[in-house]
Design a protein around this nucleic acid. Structure first.
Lengths: 171, 171
DNA sequence: GAGGCCATGTAACATGTTACATGATTGT
DNA sequence: ACAATCATGTAACATGTTACATGGCCTC
């Protein structure tokens, strides 16, 4: 149900239409919580039905502008305060690791090397981004920096793990 | 489509019924690729229809025993060799981080502290498991150790990140 | 007047969850 | 005979993806 909270969170800043929100999903939220058009428009209707947002204005081209309600803010607040499960419960990578004995050592090492390469590339990309952000000011970038750091540390972890894992493979 | 590959992988070892496979999902694959009964039975029927498995025997209580076919092995092999995307594309944690400015510094620090605590607990649990596994022998545990190490490093990363992030919050 | 952007939606499909339905066989 | 376990499935719902449908408005 987090698409719902993502929409509510975006609507706190200012009222917006589904179209506006879609653009925000495609830009700022693209790497954190991607969403499709159908999802956004559908969820906005459900949100309005549930009283968490209101249609505050109608504009040209059937434009509907949504505003978050008090009930919506409350829902968002309790979501933010609630603890979050750690987890991608399903990992295709680890599933492959589970079946490693079904491939040759060469195949396995190649797979892990590929993974290491990708993680290293991601790490470099994010490190460059962090360097670029360091010169910028403003409280708006604090969140971004914290999220970025997560991605950076994760890529680093995975890169190192893949290297270590390849060394464990015998033969 | 990885449920399909998980089933094929399990069937390489030996033929099995849906019931047998469910038990394997609940034990060995529980943390890597959980699956429900409905999914397993449904996918097995689809797999048989696609010719990737055969019903090799029928037993008491309508038991159907499935065996992987040559085509099934081929499908499994190419899946194992193919590169895997890095990714949980959606992260509820990072979504909350994105909206951190909507909560008070106290709430934010509490949320991050909770996360740190959970990651630390997971880390300890896995470290104990690794220690227990160290005394065991056999090539069957190599995979398990590699997967375990991933979880361990991830928990460590998250624990440290949460501590660092909490320190970034002002006020 | 034509092309591009604004704007909202529906339909079909894939995957996964939860709950329910049904019954056979085995061991005590 | 009764309970536990074996065994397979269906139905309803939630979430997400892809493709398609429809049309208004603005600028050149």
């Amino acid at each position: 149900m987090s698409l719902r909270h993502a929409l509510l969170g975006l609507l706190v800043d200012r009222p917006a239409s589904g179209y506006d929100l879609m653009k925000l999903f495609d830009t700022s939220l693209a790497h954190v919580w991607p969403a499709t058009q159908s999802q956004v428009y559908g969820e906005l209707n459900r949100l309005a039905e549930a009283g968490l947002v209101d249609v505050s204005a109608e504009g040209p081209r059937r434009r509907k502008e949504y505003t978050i309600t008090g009930q919506g803010r409350q829902e968002l607040g309790s979501w933010l305060a609630a603890p979050t499960q750690r987890q991608p419960r399903r990992s295709e990578l680890l599933l492959k690791v589970f079946f490693l004995h079904l491939a040759t050592p060469e195949q396995t090492r190649a797979m892990l090397a590929e993974r290491e390469k990708r993680a290293a590339a991601d790490h470099e990309r994010l490190a460059a981004l962090r360097a670029a952000l360091e010169s910028e000011e403003g409280p708006l970038t604090v969140n971004g920096r914290i999220a970025l750091e997560y991605g950076l540390r994760w890529a680093e972890m995975e890169r190192d793990w893949a290297g270590w894992a390849a060394a464990q493979i015998e033969g």
